[in-house]
Write a protein that binds this DNA or RNA. Sequence first.
RNA 1: GAGCCAUUAGCUCAGUCGGUAGAGCAACUGCCUUUUAAGCAGUGGGUCGUUGGUUCAAGUCCAACAUGGCUCACCA
Length: 512
Amino acid sequence: METAQDQGFTAGNLQGENTFNMDQHRLEKLQKLTENNVQPYVNSFKIPFSIKEVSERFENTDGHELLEKKYTFTVAGRVMAMRQFGKVNFLNLKDRTGNIQAYLKKGDLAEDQYNVFELTDVGDFVSISGFVFRTKTGELTIYAERFSLLTKSLRDLPEKFHGLKDVEQRYRRRYVDLIVNDNVRNIFRKRSAIIQEVRNFFLSKDFMEVETPMMQPIAGGATAKPFVTHHNALDMPLYMRIAPELYLKRLVIGGFERVFEINRSFRNEGLSTRHNPEFTMIEWYMAYADYYDLMDMIETFVRNIAIKVCGTAKIPFNGRIIDLESPWKRMTMEQAIVDLGEKGITLEQLAEYDSARKTAEDLGIFINNSWGKGRIVLEIFENTVEEKLFDPIFITDYPKEVSPLAKSRKDNPEITERYELFIGGFEVSNGFNELNDPIDQKERFEKQVAEKEAGDEEAHAMDSDYIRALEYGLPPTAGAGLGIDRLVMLLTDSQSIREVILFPHMRPEDAG
RNA sequence: GAGCCAUUAGCUCAGUCGGUAGAGCAACUGCCUUUUAAGCAGUGGGUCGUUGGUUCAAGUCCAACAUGGCUCACCA
C-alpha cells in the first residue's frame, strides 16, 4: 500500500518547510495514521442515505421504539464538533443535507477503530455505522458501532461559535465560509433555486434556451467597456461579451421566435457593491410581443419566484420590506422626476433642451456639451429618483438618445418603447421593443461610432453583420435583460453583490 | 480613480497617557459513561499587514506601500 510517506508527504518534511502553515498536531496524527497503515484519504466510500433522510425518517419515533428495533444506518460527513465526556464522545456530523449527532463509547468500538477515532479532528470526514437512539435530551443520535476515517483535514476550522467573519477571508476561502456559515450556504442554495425557477418559467412559456458566443469580434448589445483578449491561431483580438443581445436577435431573425440565455457577461469597469466584472443575467427575446408583455412576464415570475424561494412576496431588504405582491407601478421617466424627484421640477422644464439643462445644472449635475435633451433628462432621473425606488416600479419612455437598440414611439420619435425595472433602489431589468428597421439601426450605429471616435470608450461599434441580419427582417419583437445577481441580492437580503457570487473577483493575496 | 475606516494567536476580539503581548474558543496533557458554545485543572502558541521614520523606548505617534470594507465616480 502506498502511504503518505511514500509520496514524500510526511509531517516531518512539511513541518520543515511549513509552507502551508498547517496544524502540526494534525500532521503528527496524519503520520501516525500512515504508520498504522490507515488510509487518511480513502479512495472511495459510498453511503445509501443522507443525514437528512435518516433524521427525517426517525424524527417522530420515540426513544423506546428506537432501542427496541435498533435501526442501523451508516452516515458520512464532516466532523463539525467533538465533545469528550469521560469514556464517551459526542460528535456532530454534517453533510449537504444537515447535521446529526453521533455517540462513540470506548469499549463498544473495536480497538483499532477507536484508535483511529482518537486521531480524528474537527474538520475530518468520517463515516459512522450504528443504531439510532435518543439521548437524555431527546436528540436523535447514532450510536457508533463502526467508525472509519474517510479524509483527514490538516487545517483548523474557524471557531465554532463566531465562525469565519473576516469578509476578505470569507471571499478568498469561500470553501471555509461555506463549511461553517450555514447562512452563506443558504444564499447559494437560494441562488441555484432562483436560476432553476427562471429557467422553468421560460421553458414553460415555450422559450428555447440557447448559447451564444462569449468571445466576440465586436462587443455589442450594451454601452460598456469590454475585456480584450487575443486569439493566437487567428491572430485577432476578441472581446469578452458585454451582452448576448445582438446574437439572440439574430436567432429570432433565424426563426427561433422565443429564445433566452442565462448568460455570464463581462464589463471592464469599476467594482462596487452592485458591480462585479463578470455577472449573470438572463436575456430573452419574444417575437409578436411588446414591452408591455415583458413587464407582465417579469412581474409574474419575480413574484412567483419570491413566493417559491422566500415563502412570501413581501421580502425583507436592507431593514425594510419590499412589496412584490401588490401590482407594480408603471410611470414615465419624466413623470417620475416630477413626482418622486426633487420638489419643484415641472414637466414643462423637462420639455426643452435649454430648460432641462438649466434644471440639471441647478441641481449640481454635470452636463457634457455633447449631450442632448434625452441624456440630460436621464441624468436628472438617475441623480434624483433612482435610489428612492424601493418597491418595484417600471420606468418607461426612455429617451432615444440613450437607447440605441430600442424602437421609437410612433407619436414621439425621441422617446423609445422601453422600460427599466427598479427594486430596492437599483436597476434590476431593462427591456424594450427591438429596433428592427435596419436603416434606422445603421444610422444609430453610425452616431455611436462617431461618439466612439470622439473618445467615448463605451459607445457601440458598427456591427455590419447585425445590420445585414436585420435587412433579412426581424419580426416585431420585444426583448429584455434581468440581472440575476441583483435579483438574488434582493431575495436574500444581501447588500453586496459579492455576497451572492461564489468567488467574487479579488486582487491576488500576495500582491506586493 | 478619490475619500474614510480596518489589519494583533488557527478563529472572534481586547490592548488605557508610548514603557518587555492579553482573553475566549480551538489545540495539547490530565480528570469526568447522555454531552451539545459541556465542565474542571494545567501547557504550548505572536515578525502586532509590510517598509521606513520620530523616540531612551512604538502594537500604540508619523509617512509610504499592500490587502480588504464602506462611500463616491463609472456602470447593470
